[in-house]
Design a protein around this nucleic acid. Structure first.
Lengths: 162, 162
DNA sequence: AAAGATTGATATCTCAATCTTT
DNA sequence: AAAGATTGAGATATCAATCTTT
């Protein structure tokens, strides 16, 4: 596909952005994970699942849809839901419309957990990210992120060829 | 630490940036991982280790330094190095200066592997990220990333309290 | 005792079957 | 057969000991 010659390597500026991006991301991820584990006993994947469930008005989402939204494998969703179910954070329910399908729904305990985690989470995001930026900078940043995302989305299919 | 009242939730603009950031990151990560696995047989963690080794002029880094640079646990480095050693990508060496320490050094096969992976990797990064941005936008983006990073670095110690 | 590193047990993730319903 | 979901086996990550050197 690509020859080892004629590669357009990154310029100094580009490399600086790319490495900065990677580093910032690693830092934010690590800090947020640690903080949430300590304050609410939730891992990042736990939190992500709960966020996706509460984003739905019914508080329930199909396994495949969860997988698509989170860019996870279906089997990972299934395993993780099993573990979260064991802890009482979510529960499965039969799907009426499609006998093959399964709902994953958040429980009262799950809502309690995410409500406990949310304030600290938001405060950390605010402290680490938004306290550093003016409203104008937030808009500029958003513009750039979305510009890149429009390209990246096309190049990131979960299942590409088969 | 934080009461459940008086939380400054994210504004609509802020939420848009934050969610966009998370999503873009997930997409880029997934695409780059898949691409590198297919083209060079390396996982993202494999690649990250090799990059950190080649960044050193000697091609070798101490276990603890690797852990610090990558924000990994030392034990994770140790386990991962063991597996990479089994595949011939890196090797351990005794540290003269400090009898407790251990060098991790890249092997010829390791260099071959990263050189095989690099062109495709760079091309993907260019295609997904930099083809969407003008040089001015790259600079603006860098400025914003580094501005946030300066804050986030302070809040992301690997080992905070003990 | 503290620092550097490894080890083993457990938890989580990935990949390839498998099972059920459409 | 294809889609939705689960299962089990193997790979990887995390956490708490352990071991050696300073």
């Amino acid at each position: 596909m690509s020859t080892s010659t004629d590669v357009r390597w990154l310029t100094t500026d580009e490399q600086r952005l790319w490495r900065g991006w990677l580093k910032l991301n690693a830092q934010l991820t690590a800090t947020l994970a640690r903080e949430m584990q300590e304050e609410a006993g939730l891992s990042s994947p736990d939190f992500e699942v709960l966020v996706n469930l509460t984003d739905s008005p019914e508080g329930r989402v199909r396994v495949t849809d969860l997988a698509t939204q989170m860019l996870w494998e279906r089997s990972r969703v299934s395993h993780h839901v099993t573990r979260m179910e064991r802890r009482g954070l979510v529960q499965r329910a039969n799907c009426e419309e499609d006998g093959r399908g399964a709902w994953v729904e958040i429980t009262a305990a799950g809502r309690t957990a995410i409500e406990k985690a949310a304030p600290g989470h938001v405060e950390t995001v605010r402290r680490l990210v938004f306290d550093a930026l003016s409203p104008d900078e937030v808009r500029a940043f958003t513009h750039l992120v979305e510009k890149v995302q429009a390209r990246a989305a096309a190049g990131a299919p979960v299942a590409e060829m088969s």
